[in-house]
């Protein structure tokens, strides 16, 4: 693995975050490009790490997808505080991965068959949606706070408009819910066919709670036409449940290795 460890790319992302924060308060092109460079370096080293590392961790893959999302946003919304909200989520996932050990969040498939892989891929994509929703929700809440305080335009952290953030969160939920539902349904069938995991397994239970939270969000969003802060808060709850799904099972089984 060319001596690459999790600490290498975590350090790159931390440097990118520091530069991003600095750039928000002292806007300089050089800071922006340096931040981008560190972010890209982190992504490159993480890619190499994931290509050779076995077993592969859920949280590492999630962090990797989010790093791509960060670079896309940083290039697309050059003047906005994109990284200030996305990079801490990436670092949080890397921190959890480091805390619980590489085996803690490894991809545990109920079945190594084709459907087992589809189940895992769908859950992973749904998890990416939840993470994107989390970033959008955090930015939404911050933007709403800025508006409530009537912060002068262009002062403080620069963010997309309230409308754009609400739309981003809505899309993340719209994409995640069907993926999560399909993943859960396939998982149920696999469990019925090959009962390797108990129904009371904390991962199964927390996934069920996560799906119910999503269902609640969808009902509130489209049934009750609820928008804004409550949906953003529920997305944060969904992310916390996702983290629980990823780490709870292992910690209840005996802690990090």
């Amino acid at each position: 693995m060319y001596g690459i460890s999790l600490v290498c790319f975590a350090t790159s992302y931390t440097a990118a975050l520091g530069l991003e924060v600095w750039c928000q308060f002292r806007p300089r092109r050089i800071l922006y490009f340096l931040g981008l460079l560190f972010g890209a370096a982190g992504l490159a080293t993480q890619s190499v790490y994931l290509a050779f590392q076995r077993p592969v961790g859920w949280m590492l893959i999630l962090a990797w997808v989010l790093a791509i999302f960060y670079l896309y946003g940083a290039l697309h919304y050059q003047r906005l505080a994109w990284g200030v909200f996305v990079l801490p989520v990436i670092l949080g996932l890397l921190g959890l991965s480091l805390l619980f050990g590489p085996e803690a969040d490894q991809l545990s498939l109920p079945d190594a068959s084709f459907w087992g892989e589809v189940h895992a891929a769908l859950l992973l994509l749904a998890a990416v949606g939840v993470c994107v929703g989390l970033c959008a929700s955090l930015m939404y809440l911050f933007r709403a706070w800025q508006l409530r305080a009537k912060t002068l335009p262009g002062r403080g952290l620069r963010l997309p408009s309230l409308e754009r953030l609400e739309q981003m969160n809505r899309r993340a939920i719209d994409w995640s819910f069907p993926l999560l539902t399909a993943g859960v349904v396939i998982g149920l069938f696999l469990m019925i066919q090959h009962p390797l995991t108990a129904w009371t397994d904390p991962r199964v239970l927390s996934t069920a709670v996560l799906w119910l939270t999503f269902l609640l969000m969808v009902v509130l969003r489209y049934g009750w036409r609820l928008r804004g802060r409550l949906v953003a808060l529920l997305t944060i709850v969904a992310f916390l449940l996702l983290v629980c799904c990823l780490v709870l099972g292992h910690s209840l089984r005996g802690g990090a290795t």
Binding site: G154, L162, E163
Partner: peptide, 20 residues
């Protein structure tokens, strides 16, 4: 940099909420 007329400053506030 920035807007100095009250009327153009109004657009800055609107853009914080709406995108299109």
């Amino acid at each position: 940099r920035g807007h100095v007329s009250v009327s153009s400053a109004a657009v800055d506030y609107v853009r914080q909420v709406f995108d299109h």
